[in-house]
Design a protein around this nucleic acid. Sequence first.
DNA 1: CAGTGGTCTAGACCACTAC
DNA 2: TAGTGGTCTAGACCACTGT
Lengths: 243, 243
Amino acid sequence: MNVVDKDSPLPMYYQIEEDIKRRIEEGSYETGKPIPSERELSEKYEVSRMTVRQAISNMVRDRLLYREKGRGTFVAEQKFEQPLDGVTSFSEDMKRRGLSPHNELLVFEKMIPDETTKDILALGTEEVYYLKRIRYADNEPMAVEETFIPVRLFPELEEKVFGVMSFYEYIETKTDVSIRSARQTIEAGIAGEDEAAPLAIDEGAAILQIERIGYLTNGLPFERNISTYRSDRYKFISDMYRN
Amino acid sequence: MNVVDKDSPLPMYYQIEEDIKRRIEEGSYETGKPIPSERELSEKYEVSRMTVRQAISNMVRDRLLYREKGRGTFVAEQKFEQPLDGVTSFSEDMKRRGLSPHNELLVFEKMIPDETTKDILALGTEEVYYLKRIRYADNEPMAVEETFIPVRLFPELEEKVFGVMSFYEYIETKTDVSIRSARQTIEAGIAGEDEAAPLAIDEGAAILQIERIGYLTNGLPFERNISTYRSDRYKFISDMYRN
DNA sequence: CAGTGGTCTAGACCACTAC
DNA sequence: TAGTGGTCTAGACCACTGT
């Protein structure tokens, strides 16, 4: 009868989270209504109240529940089917939108970076990989993208990787470092000759310019990415939370 | 000698957080190096280990510290002086950039919303407040902004509020609801007559169009905001984290 | 008033890391 | 082996909400 297994290798607070999620999905716990109190749950699952609190705290952090002092703990509205927050690569972004991404790799080479890039990536006299790509979604050109990556961080990076997987996938599966965060700067511009041709738009059309600087868990910058999107087909969408 | 005051109205875990932050700032706890163990800290502050853990957990959530199993708790790289993530109002955004915001309120009225707004705000036959404002930073026009707010949610909202404080401040100090999240859509456009004049830019110049839909903790949408920024003075900047 | 979440204690055993 | 964070217990008192 009891849903938590004290001998399971999974921590009990985790098992409780899963059970509460299940009940929310099946509708036993309704959106906007309170779930049972912490004391009731600790009796029900036969664990201490602190353990129930840990489960609930995690779910509050993930915004599945919210607490109100003196009133109770409530099921939050599940507004966003798929979260649109967080750092994503072009490939991931397109897949999330239900489109099929692919690349045309125009340039892949090692080079000495310009001053701005050197500064941003905190480099000395080191080389970077330089990539220039046209990004397609469902076979339509969406963006022109330039990327600078310090060679030192990924000495074994090869051109063929970019045909097979997303660079972010590569980092997370093939290396022992991981991505922490990015700072994005977004501005509007007007397409010149260089942008208009590859994107198949008119000169003078609006374009969206996004510069992203990505950071690893240890705090080091690992990429500078400059993208130019056609604004008739692409909107930048993101979910943000109040801190 | 002791830095935590058990009789203070501030919770002890909060006082401990503040003390650890102070030590990081003054350099006693160094970036990338471990802070004292939880057991040491609980002796030092004369509190139980769970209380120390609560302080540390909060700081890990805020990415000031990170834990490594069996090794210790470490001071994270402090990349961003001031966090640029999260949902912010225009006023808050400008202050964070070190600029002085002010408004010119062109329209403040109650009206029946158009279909799109009605749909977005999940309204029936209800009225909304409609605001149209020119937003200034350091006395230069930065954006034209239209906002739709359901009257039902803030029946006592008055025009004069917008002169005194940020709408977000109003919500968080004068009402008993609070802001959870927002979805922002950003695109590039070309200034027409309507945008060029109030922003003091040329027709045909690039503009940044941002639509924000804001949500309360209980999941209800509380505002639809459509902003047009001049792109020669304004860049949208945000920090994002990998999930 | 009874019930809720918020905070806190003083222990305990575990798996993991480093030496 | 000794030290670390991860998990858990069985209590306790508080401030806040609703009736």
